[in-house]
Computed example of a mutant assay.
Amino acid sequence: MFYGISLTAILVALWLTLSGPFTLSGDYPIVMGLGVLSIIGTVALTYRMRIVDRETVPIGPALALFTYWGWLGGEIVKANLAVLRLVMKPEIEVEPRLIRAPAEQRTDLGRCVFANSITLTPGTVTVDVEDDGFLVHALDKSFTDPAGFAEMGARSDIASDGKKRTD
């Protein structure tokens, strides 16, 4: 029941955010009615499909996820500056590399967050997903620090389920 209410609240907030300015004139009652029907239909379908659970509606790790997004934003800014420094030199001295970044996340969502975080960070791209990690293309060898990947991997794991590792 908690996940159904949470899903409904998230969909209402999303719909209100994306629907634009509120006016009570014109076609607004029709738009509002269709929005309510779409939310009810979506929640009903998820219940019918029996997929309203912790994985479908990840409310628990929301705070950890927002914290992770803040940290990732800082890392993206740092990586942008590093790429800028690298390409603005009079003589470009890039040394591209393909490396394997180990992925020790507990969930598929954690692996997904980690792989996408690598790709979002300028200078690195997740090229292939493997059982034990990812194949990553780095623009320069300076972007291949194993400690950086380990930190991002650990943070993405916490962001995906809201719990620190105990092992």
Rank of each mutant, 00 (worst) to 15 (best):
G4P: 11
S6D: 06
T8G: 07
L11I: 02
A13C: 15
A13P: 04
L14S: 13
L14G: 01
G26P: 09
P29M: 13
V31R: 12
G35N: 12
V36Y: 07
S38N: 10
I40T: 12
I40R: 04
I40F: 11
T42D: 05
V43S: 13
A44P: 04
R50H: 07
R50A: 08
V52S: 05
E55V: 04
T56E: 08
I59Q: 02
P61H: 12
A62G: 00
L63M: 03
L63A: 15
L65E: 10
L65A: 02
L65N: 12
F66C: 10
T67C: 05
G70N: 14
G73I: 13
E75T: 04
V87Y: 02
E91W: 03
E95C: 03
R97P: 10
I99S: 14
A101M: 03
T107V: 04
F114M: 14
N116K: 12
S117R: 04
I118D: 15
G123A: 05
T126K: 02
V129L: 11
D131L: 00
D132S: 12
G133R: 08
F134L: 06
H137I: 00
L139C: 01
D145L: 00
P146R: 00
P146D: 01
A147L: 10
G148W: 00
G148V: 06
A150E: 15
E151T: 14
G153C: 11
S156Q: 00
S156N: 13
I158N: 05
S160Y: 05
K163W: 04
R165N: 10
T166L: 13
T166C: 11
